[in-house]
Amino acid sequence: MDFKVVDEIIDKYKDPSGRILGILEDIQDTYNYLPKEVMVYVSKKLNVPLSSLYSVATFYSFFNLEPVGEHLISVCMGTACHVKGAPELLESLKHLLGIDVNEVTDDGKFVLTTTDRKFSLSSARCFGCCSMAPVIRIDDRIYGYVKIKDLPAILKEYGWKEK
């Protein structure tokens, strides 16, 4: 693995405040998850125990230790979305994507990926778009007022095919 990118990321963060989170976030932006080799490398380079980086990576829900699919779908499970039917949306999405309902990762972070690795499905806590509840986010785009019946059309924008 080429660590030049990682070096560049590390060099960006000179000030100790926010350094570790910033570096890990940028690494995840680059690789779409936190590869183990990179974590080991960062640990050596910063002289921070790997155990403590791993602790941070597993504590914050933003970080993924496994690669996620090409498109990441997050269903908002915030209060406003909850009372407006987010659980049903999630249920529908699982079925549309053909993701096994029982397949829940045991690190408590809920990310499910389709077998073709095209989509990952996860839940999130409030995107701050509560006025548009229920809300889902696909990659960087937020969809408001989502209805179950709109889901197929939305997914098709991302290359999903109806079975």
């Binding site: 974590m39 921070v48 125990p49 155990s51 403590s52 980086l53 791993y54 602790s55 408590g108």
Partner: peptide, 23 residues
């Protein structure tokens, strides 16, 4: 971590599922 400065183990995960172990 704090006394010996070794850092072999730490907390993993959070909340109800949190545990302690090596990375």
């Amino acid at each position: 971590n704090d006394v010996l400065g070794v850092g072999a183990i730490n907390f993993i995960g959070r909340g109800y599922r949190a545990t302690v172990n090596v990375p």
